[in-house]
Design a protein around this nucleic acid. Sequence first.
DNA 1: CGGTACGTTGGAAGCGCTTCCACTGCCGCC
DNA 2: GGCGGCAGTGGAAGCGCTTCCAACGTACCG
Lengths: 336, 336
Amino acid sequence: MVRTIDELAELSGVSRATVSRVLNNGSVSDATRQRVQAVVDRTNFRPNPAARSLASGRSGVVGVVMHIDSHLLFRDPYFSQLLQGMSDALADGSAGMMLWLGNCSKEETLDRILGIRLLDGVIVTAHDLDDPLVDGLLASRLPTVLIGHRSADRTASYVDVDHVHAADAMTTHLLETGRRRVGHITGMRGTVTGEDRLTGYRRAMHRARLAIDDLVVDGDFNEPSGAAGAAVLLDHGVDAIFCANDATAVGALRVIRERGLRVPEDVALAGFDDLDFAAHLDPPLTTVRQGVREQGAQAVSSLFQLVRDRDGAPRRVILPTELVIRQSTVGGVPRA
Amino acid sequence: MVRTIDELAELSGVSRATVSRVLNNGSVSDATRQRVQAVVDRTNFRPNPAARSLASGRSGVVGVVMHIDSHLLFRDPYFSQLLQGMSDALADGSAGMMLWLGNCSKEETLDRILGIRLLDGVIVTAHDLDDPLVDGLLASRLPTVLIGHRSADRTASYVDVDHVHAADAMTTHLLETGRRRVGHITGMRGTVTGEDRLTGYRRAMHRARLAIDDLVVDGDFNEPSGAAGAAVLLDHGVDAIFCANDATAVGALRVIRERGLRVPEDVALAGFDDLDFAAHLDPPLTTVRQGVREQGAQAVSSLFQLVRDRDGAPRRVILPTELVIRQSTVGGVPRA
DNA sequence: CGGTACGTTGGAAGCGCTTCCACTGCCGCC
DNA sequence: GGCGGCAGTGGAAGCGCTTCCAACGTACCG
């Protein structure tokens, strides 16, 4: 078994430096490259990452930080899809992924991440408006990409979608179907997504010169809060409910049903995320598709660029969203 | 900023070798140790992991492989708790965790894990009776600990619980409450846990000289399969349903309710896992508690031992389970 | 009191790779 | 035809740590 670059060099009759160049896409003549590559392939050689890392200062490992309450983390498929998007993209770039979940305090997590001195960079979910972990990461020398962002981060690199715009579009859609009393069950207050979606809803309602006094109920992105919120909104006589995410909509749907009301005839219902199950609800849920996997992939790609060019400009990526209109708002297909 | 052990050596007036010993709990006199440690603390020094890894051959990073369909992975809190247990234990041992999920084929995953040459060892969930990924890992030189195990693995290290015994105990409990037609909705067939729990159920029924002809329905550990299974079993006139896990029980509970039957008066219901929500169902669910977090922690500790003593005997750990009896099988507390 | 043993320390040799620098040969240009 | 330049290559110096080995001093034994 060939374990070092020196053996490889001997086998292919070149110097160790040349083998290294072949392995790292350095400048080598075609003939030499092919000769060496053939030996590499034949012996299935993999360079020692520790040695490579020591010599080059890069490790090929990035950290992924999702400091989120585990209930939310694993209840909400959003995170799993995000993780998969990143995981795929990292594998494609033949980089490893180290994961930090929210087991300990944010301060402690920060300490560990900065202390490990192994990471080329980190990707961190930034959902709270105010987050010491994110602040600490940004303040450090470690290349960092946020998923979601705080408007204040003008120098940070991030990947996000325009929640305000998307929520506005959804609300507008509901209004266009003739609804007037459109309620909103918010996401968790204090989170970027929660606040932004609320802002978008408000904007659309305001533009339509509609009051929202008793039409907004606080939720927390979870099914139970959807049920509770819907109960309140139905009492206030809404004819449509826009939920801050799909999970919330599931809870709302249940309560609407329990009251003997029909969707969308009596109450239109909309969500946000377009998670897998949204299309399979009864009726299929109108929602906003944000390519979650794609967000993960994009974050990885931004981070790679940032690592390669440490002093480059921050990478800010806003991914598009798509209004996915299904039967929960427009009836449409008659049901048997 | 102190970045190397040499600077540290100079600051504390000892040789580089001695500093290294302090950092690695080598044999150093108390006086020297304290002097050096003081400098380490003051400068908040962290050794370069790449250099350490290159010199010692150990990386302090372990792989965690959960090659599972993402729907299952993130829908079922079992995995999140497992992950947390491992994550905590690894952090305590100041080791890093690299995570592999089931994004690509098992063969490809195996390739990547073995190719990375960075890992001190791996922990892999072994739920299928037959799994090329697990086989490949065990065949490699990489220290490996399985969570769950195949009975054939006599040389492998693993952490598991005695599913057969636990399922037997649960079934026996149901019989002791006077039930005679105890149905079972299995877990996914072909998985160790699914088959073992079925075996335990069979054993108990057999010991009670009860036929099980029409009392077993295949499920897949998910809520919908619980609903479907319960529908069949109720048609067959059962007076108790033992579900292969808690998620399945939730589906079953819904169907029982929809038919206007009472739990436990008409049908007793039991699950397996004791996930967080089990205690909060209505009625609270009788189930089997397996310390999932503890399994994760135990796997980590076994792996650490294995890494330290590569040629040691395989570590086989069977963790105890606990029958958690709640109102879904014994009525008990009268409800308002 | 000499010798042995042990606990503690420093010196030095790597671990396997990247990368800077110098060297070689060749082409093309004036 | 000579020379500057360049592409391709090898030599060698580390990257920051662990760990073997030898040296030292001290304590204890005979």
